[in-house]
Write a protein that binds this DNA or RNA. Structure first.
Lengths: 250, 250
DNA sequence: CCAAAAGTGTTCATTCTACACCCATGG
DNA sequence: CCATGGGTGTAGAATGAACACTTTTGG
């Protein structure tokens, strides 16, 4: 599995009687590091993901996840935020790591390992813009994604699975909705996310029983049926409950 | 945030009219990559973790998680298995990524980003051995861990939390037990893992109702009380159920 | 026969599910 | 007054918690 021509660390340590951090291990410091972001949005009952058309080689012109190399003096989570902000203009958003992709041959330019991130944004708040490394940015239906460059198909697939897992146990779904929303919107979102179908009455009872929604005493306007009551997510209360070991669970 | 002296990728692209992978981006390829493993075990009602005493600088002589630099031609998950196998002699084991740690200053030797892994092993099956980079390997009580080198305290803390989260939704706890076990053992394990206390009758009903245990029709011997029935985990059936979207949940 | 731990059954409370029904608005 | 979706109540089933009880072994 390992190439003998490459140094064996222990051997090298024995060879030099100086602390190992004083030796220049050039061969060990030749990795590139990148970040690839799966940005989810939700619009008209559909889960969407932000894709770019690559403006530079490799894979120029192909579909890909937004991502970039990390600067040697840049923290990795800062890099992830930078990328999404470049494309969406949104700076404060929910972001989380998914996995690291470290296959030797995953990048044609050399040994680049990449960290997947996913984030959730309220699609109405943003205005996608091409950046230096992209020819264009597009919201794609998740069910209707083209094949992607590099190993981005796998990164996307993993992110979707992790999101679905997570959303059942943590109230992250709210990030995809506007600040004020009706319960039916929330239900539709969960149905789209989890590909499920819930009873209206039961869904309401379950959600409201968590005590994490603020009743805004406001209502929809201009709809030709009974206007829905609007709610917002009570983040402060959630943080308090979380401290005490509270779990969201659906 | 970013240092101007460092190259701006888009600028560089404009500057050279050749594909970007043909340019040598030395400055981007100077990261080191490592892997740090949180190896959990379980013995006498206590959750344990495998720690080493570092045999080399930096942090020589201090406690740390087993970890090592990844070779430039080595896949990252292979590296993780290599490390645990060096220390425990076990090759086939449950391993999973936790997070990436990419803080700029986390390693004194340069920009080394590390990937956390955790694994679960049946403690009776293994014989910990010092390797080239460790002066000794020890099982430590999780509640009684010393302070660790690098950012390993954080890596350990995260792994524990991820393990606790995971074990409630996936049947990974079985990895910590011998192949054949009694229900009481399983209950004690879950109680130790989740720091909880379950009613014996109810725990049994819940576990057995999942239909994932094989009744071996074998019994404990040599105990001065009614001998317990032995079970094993039905991995095949679990994989079948998982396909159909089954969730373990406690 | 006793101690110790395995293993079971029953009751009561809580939660979940399905479904029927009422309410408010625009047209 | 109708269509449309918002919003509520309830009965029965399923699940969960608490606890008492029986069983089997070694000593």
């Amino acid at each position: 599995m390992l190439n003998d021509e490459n140094l064996d660390l222990s051997e090298k340590r024995a060879q030099f009687a100086v602390p190992y951090y004083e030796i220049s291990y050039e061969k060990f410091f030749q990795f590139g590091l990148s970040v690839d972001c799966v940005v989810f949005g939700y619009h008209e009952n559909k889960l969407k993901v932000l894709l770019i058309r690559r403006g530079a080689a490799p894979f120029k012109g192909e579909w890909a996840l937004p991502g970039d190399l990390v600067y040697p003096n840049e923290n990795i989570d800062v890099a992830a935020r930078r990328i999404v902000q470049d494309l969406t203009g949104i700076s404060k958003l929910y972001m989380e790591q998914t996995k690291v992709y470290g296959q030797v041959d995953r990048h044609p330019a050399g040994r680049v390992i990449t960290t997947g991130y996913y984030s959730l944004i309220d699609i109405d708040k943003h205005d996608p813009q091409a950046s230096a490394w992209a020819d264009g940015v597009y919201w794609m239906d998740l069910d209707d994604c083209p094949s992607l460059a590099f190993d981005h198909d796998e990164i996307l697939k993993d992110a979707v699975q992790i999101l679905r897992d997570k959303v059942r146990h943590r109230p992250i779904g709210f990030e995809l909705l506007p600040k004020k929303f009706a319960l039916a919107q929330l239900q539709e979102l969960y149905e789209a996310l989890l590909n499920a179908d819930y009873d209206k009455a039961n869904f309401r009872k379950r959600i409201l029983s968590k005590g994490l929604l603020i009743d805004l005493k406001e209502y929809q306007t201009g709809v030709s049926h009974r206007p829905a009551r609007l709610y917002s997510f009570d983040e402060d209360r959630y943080n308090v409950l979380k401290e005490k070991g509270f779990s969201f669970e659906l």
